[in-house]
């Protein structure tokens, strides 16, 4: 990287510009990844945290996708499946003059997230919501207009972008005015198929949450497009850069440098700029993400920073490889004469 390092110093403005663009693109990709993970958690973390591997839902008609919003399983179907019934509805929780929308899970105590305080068997609130409303076990609240008493605080989970509160199944059925449930959580597939039901793994069940697939798909598409744009931007920069210095490269070839020498130098230069830009962008995105996480669903950890950062470097290098491969085609004979 003898030439690369000196070029970086000499043309520092140009490379700073490219590094800045890479940093901005990385910031956007990392921020979108954190937001995607945050929205995923807000939409389906209650499903992801279920201790069972499968969920049975009502088989929808005409091959449509099963949905938690429309699924209804009868007591006979629940008995045939032989596992944990799960009711899901949306209600208002009122306490201390404040009201908030919540998802109510009617579930056996075995399906609850880890307890932080109190005892299972009644209304369990997510700890963060309880803190926000100033509630502790034993405090009275109204859920869907019905008086309830907080019995436990659990680790926070969400469903369909609302915090999840837990009630025992009979209490949930009373609240929902139904004798059915929404789904059944199972540790293993039933011995025999139960008519009118469809079995999904826990991961597959995410798609039964309204809007989850389209929301995540849109965000994934944006991230993919950003990566493609990044590859194009980096490729375009290094194409122009390589074309500009082709006469210099011809001189280096005439001095005896092989193609591999020039390729190593050019790719090393690209990697240095990409890495610096990506690390800068990733650090900025992490800092902003930690601030944003106080207001919006956002996950800022290694799983949302490292993969997009590495992807940025990877696709950038891909663009650079396509651009600098013309280095190998530089003809040293053009260093002679007055062609320069």
């Amino acid at each position: 990287m003898f030439i690369a390092i000196r070029d970086l110093r000499f043309a520092r403005g140009r490379f700073a510009l490219l590094g800045g663009v890479v940093a901005l693109m990385t910031l956007m990709v990392v921020a979108l990844t954190g937001l995607t993970a945050g929205l995923r958690a807000a939409a389906v973390s209650a499903v992801d945290r279920l201790p069972t591997a499968y969920l049975a839902l009502e088989q929808p008609p005409d091959g449509a996708q099963p949905s938690f919003a429309t699924s209804t399983l009868t007591a006979e179907q629940v008995a045939a499946l032989g596992a944990y019934p799960l009711g899901i509805s949306t209600n208002r929780l009122a306490a201390g003059g404040r009201t908030t929308a919540v998802t109510v899970f009617g579930a056996d105590a075995a399906l609850l997230p880890p307890l932080r305080r109190g005892a299972a068997g009644g209304l369990a609130l997510p700890a963060d919501l309880a803190a926000d409303l100033g509630l502790s076990p034993g405090d009275p609240v109204e859920l869907g207009g019905h008086p309830q008493t907080v019995s436990a605080l659990v680790e926070p989970v969400s469903f369909s972008h609302l915090p999840v509160v837990y009630l025992p199944v009979p209490a949930w059925q009373a609240l929902a005015r139904t004798d059915t449930v929404t789904a059944v959580a199972l540790a293993a597939p039933p011995a025999a198929p139960v008519p009118g039901t469809v079995l999904r793994t826990r991961a597959q069940s995410r798609d039964a949450v309204g809007g989850f697939s389209s929301e995540q798909g849109s965000l994934d598409l944006m991230r993919g497009l950003l990566l493609v744009v990044s590859a194009l931007v980096v490729g375009a920069f290094f194409t122009v850069w390589t074309v500009q210095r082709t006469p210099d490269l011809a001189v280096v070839r005439a001095l005896g440098a092989g193609r591999a020498y020039l390729l190593r130098d050019a790719l090393g230069q690209a990697a240095a700029v990409l890495l610096a830009g990506a690390v800068l962008g990733g650090a900025a995105a992490t800092g902003l993400g930690l601030l944003a996480a106080r207001a919006v669903p956002y996950v800022a950890d290694a799983s949302t920073v490292a993969p997009p950062l590495l992807a940025m470097v990877g696709v950038g290098l891909l663009g650079a490889v396509v651009a600098v491969r013309r280095v190998a085609a530089v003809d040293p004979i053009t260093a002679l004469g007055s062609a320069r």
Partner: peptide, 21 residues
Amino acid sequence: DRLRRERIGFVFQQANLLPSL
């Protein structure tokens, strides 16, 4: 390439020095 870099020296018409060096 090897023989050129080990046994031949070039001086070009416009010197052809690299601008960043």
